Simulated assay, not measured.
Amino acid sequence: MRKITVVIASTSPVNRVRISKLISTVPGAEIIAMTGDLSETFTISEAREPDLVVISSEFQKLDEFKAMKSLFYALDSRWIRVETDEKKLPLAIVHMKSGQQAPEPVIDFQMSTQVVQNQIHRAMLILRTYGNQPAPTPRKVEQTAFDRLVVIGSSTGGVDALLTLLSEFPLDCPPTAIVQHTGRNFSESLIRLLDRRCKPQVVGAQDGLILRPGMVCVAGGIEGHMLINGTQSYRCQIRPGPPVSGHVPSVDALFRSVLPLAPKVVGVILTGMGQDGAAGLLELRRASCITFGQDEGSSVVYGMPKTAWEMGAVQYRLPIQKIGAEVLRVCAQGSASLSQMAGDEKSLTVR
């Protein structure tokens, strides 16, 4: 087996030692770090880029693990669970590089050395969503003609979706504001990841920040709602308040804040659980905003975009791999391009 760099993550110092003994039996495995919480785990994984992260089962029971899982995928790091208590979690179904589907590999302290080695070998053969999908076909866009603001809302599965969408954006992309539901501990890591992987400058939401072409502003896990106002320039505001549609920050709050600018806005709703953003997107569409929604086939959780589609908020429904280019085309050419888009895209659903 080739060399595999490994990070071990467990809240228990005792379990970290026990896991390290398991991993030390795997030929080629090199433990480069051991961590005690999810935030530290991602920070180290981001900096060291391990081949494999071995995570104790108590972490998977935390709500924050959903965001952590997406960030691992974006880094193209594999991970495997170690069962550390008697109540075992259900096995997820994963896609293997062979094209087959199979139960996710797990290890526990009762397994033999050979079984542990086999399970880790299987973990290294899991197909990762972002790192293995075909790159979107580049399209020529009149980059000097962007005159719109782009607002995006996403939740579960949103990290991969944003990486795919923003991979189409050029250095001088339209000013873009994004609300991504994520835990507070992962906000800075998410921003660094997007900024490292994307051509435009990606920054965290700050009160008073002016959004300019070539800038993507992300609110994730902040203590307040991100609002955008202004006519000559787009200014970010962070306003404290109760949850809107169950969330702080809220996609609905962002979308409603740009209602006065609706004819110059492109609204996008991506994969996610629940319905945050659906009502706000409907209000935007009624105010002459052009709206896009991710389709079911490319969504990790078809909740937010499904609700928006069923409400009539989504004007154009597309796979995530095609949304970025079409948003740019609308921003560059305006509504005149929409009839061409409808005729060109076999995977496009228009309402």
Rank of each mutant, 00 (worst) to 15 (best):
L281G: 04
I152W: 05
L166R: 11
M124Y: 05
V300D: 10
A102Q: 11
G267C: 01
L125D: 10
S189V: 10
T349E: 15
G28M: 11
P242N: 08
R16V: 00
R128Q: 10
L328P: 02
T113Q: 15
R148G: 04
G293S: 12
G241Q: 13
M1H: 13
P319R: 04
Q232G: 14
L338I: 14
P263F: 11
T35N: 04
V218D: 05
T144C: 11
G274M: 01
L75G: 12
T176C: 03
T164D: 07
G131N: 14
P263R: 06
S233T: 12
G183N: 07
L75D: 14
N229Q: 13
S288L: 09
L166E: 06
A135H: 15
G221I: 02
F186G: 04
G267A: 06
I238H: 02
T182M: 14
F186T: 02
G214Q: 08
D344N: 13
K66P: 01
L270E: 09
I323M: 10
Q101S: 15
P136A: 14
D147H: 13
A102H: 13
R122E: 10
M273F: 02
V266E: 04
F59G: 05
A253V: 05
Q143G: 08
R285N: 07
A47N: 13
Q237R: 06
D276A: 00
H181T: 00
P213D: 11
R139I: 10
T156L: 12
T5A: 15
E46M: 10
S339R: 13
P50A: 00
A287R: 05
G303H: 00
I222D: 05
V314G: 03
T164Y: 06
G293Y: 07
L166H: 09
D276K: 02
V218S: 03
I32Y: 12
P170C: 14
I55P: 05
G221F: 03
H95V: 12
C198S: 14
K88F: 07
E86T: 14
I228H: 02
H247Y: 01
M273R: 02
H95L: 15
Y302N: 11
L328C: 08
R285Q: 11
V251G: 03
H225A: 08
G220A: 06
L89A: 09
L38E: 12
S167D: 12
V151C: 13
V106G: 11
M1E: 04
G204F: 00
A325V: 06
A135Q: 15
S288W: 09
D295E: 11
A102I: 05
G208Y: 01
V265S: 04
V350D: 11
Q321S: 10
S167E: 09
T164S: 14
P138F: 08
K199H: 12
D172Y: 11
T84W: 02
S98T: 14
Q110C: 01
L282G: 08
S57R: 07
S155R: 05
